[in-house]
């Protein structure tokens, strides 16, 4: 029969025989793309140093992953964009003025210790970029808290340093923050566009929100974590952040400053290290918010987003264990 010859060419595999078009690489590279506005703003405010630091982070992250995998005779996975993303996020989380070895050490910790030793992408417990950053902050507390003053031009190498808004708030309170920024409207505006000291990628709230909108639109992240995270921070800031008693705080200052937007949309939502069930993600977001504000208001550090996300990373497997999605037909079962 004519088909006899054909028979051996047919491919046999298990259903389904058609697949959606999403791939890990597509998702990761889109996230990278969504951070582009924030990166551009960082170069605008902090000059070529910003590009240098971020580039060095990306380069060392990608190279580290490649060398590790090649030297162990494994398939290199740098094409999926996750190492690039780790480097990029680490870079955006560093101050502009760090010496060259800080990005390299940070990338090594992020890629090797946090990701590859755990079995690679998909198995890490902690967000690699954040562990890299935390490691650096604890190791080099002084170098990691030198903040350059934003200059608002692409070329400048202004060496003037200043404190971050949250740093000022912690040290001198709201009054001093007002002295530095003028009135509240000026403060909000500076925080929105990113004209303030801080880690490279965290300053420009508008640029970050543009990227976040892309991710939300594409469905790569959902509202659950960012919303519950931001809402908790807002409520906590309003309730406990005021100088004149409960419910007098200014939630906007806390929402717009620090690494909150960057953390809530781009790092707390890291698939691998957050709970995978949506209900659990809300718990996760609320936890992040609570710890962030606890540290900001009472703790030893001016900013708590990084530690909050890392601490909730610890709890994510526990949350995943405790929160199960509702199974089809489960109501009747319980009544029995």
């Amino acid at each position: 029969m004519a088909t006899e010859a054909k028979a051996h060419e047919l491919i046999v595999s298990v259903s389904p025989h058609v697949r959606g078009k999403e791939t890990v690489g597509r998702i990761m590279w889109t996230v990278n793309l969504s951070l582009l506005p924030a990166f551009i703003m960082s170069v605008y405010y902090f000059g070529p140093l910003a590009a240098y630091v971020t580039g060095l982070c990306i380069l060392s992250a990608v190279l580290t992953e490649h060398i590790y995998q090649v030297s162990l005779n494994k398939k290199t996975t740098i094409g999926d964009g996750s190492a690039f993303l780790t480097g990029l996020l680490l870079g955006l989380n560093l101050p502009a003025s760090v010496p060259f070895y800080i990005p390299i050490v940070g990338s090594f910790i992020a890629i090797v210790i946090t990701k590859l030793l755990f079995g690679g992408l998909g198995y890490n417990i902690f967000n690699p970029a954040l562990i890299g950053r935390a490691f650096l902050l604890i190791s080099f507390p002084r170098l990691m808290t030198i903040w350059l003053k934003p200059t608002a031009q692409f070329v400048s190498l202004d060496a003037k340093t200043t404190a971050t808004p949250l740093g000022i708030l912690k040290e001198g309170g709201l009054d001093q923050l007002m002295q530095v920024f003028g009135d509240k409207a000026d403060l909000y505006m500076s925080l929105l566009v990113g004209n303030r000291a801080g880690s490279l990628g965290e300053t420009s709230v508008i640029a970050l929100l543009i990227g976040a909108a892309l991710l939300l639109y594409r469905g790569y992240i959902t509202w659950h974590i960012p919303f519950s995270f931001l809402a908790t921070v807002g409520v906590m800031a309003w309730a406990l952040g005021g100088d004149s008693g409960f419910f007098t705080g200014d939630p906007l200052i806390h929402l717009l400053s620090g690494g909150l937007i960057l953390g809530a949309f781009f790092m707390a939502t890291d698939y691998v290290t957050c709970p995978s069930i949506r209900k659990g993600q809300i718990v996760f977001g609320i936890g992040c918010g609570l710890i962030t504000m606890l540290i900001r208001l009472k703790g030893g550090f001016p900013e708590g987003v990084m530690f909050a996300i890392l601490l909730m990373n610890c709890f994510a497997p526990l949350i995943d264990r405790g929160v199960k999605s509702k199974m089809f037909g489960a109501i009747k079962e319980q009544k029995k």
């Binding site: 491919i11 595999s13 298990v14 025989h17 058609v18 697949r19 999403e22 890990v24 998702i27 996975t77 999926d80 079995g119 690679g120 992408l121 998909g122 198995y123 698939y271 691998v272 995978s276 069930i277 949506r278 199960k324 999605s325 509702k326 199974m327 089809f328 489960a330």
Partner: peptide
């Protein structure tokens, strides 16, 4: 139209499958 299923990678726990499973499984 054919998609090879040999070349798969580790689960990145994106949760897409949980979102679509009609039976509410993981």
């Amino acid at each position: 139209e054919y998609v090879s299923s040999d070349d798969y990678s580790a689960c990145i726990r994106c949760g897409s499958c949980i979102d679509v499973c009609p039976m509410g499984l993981n």
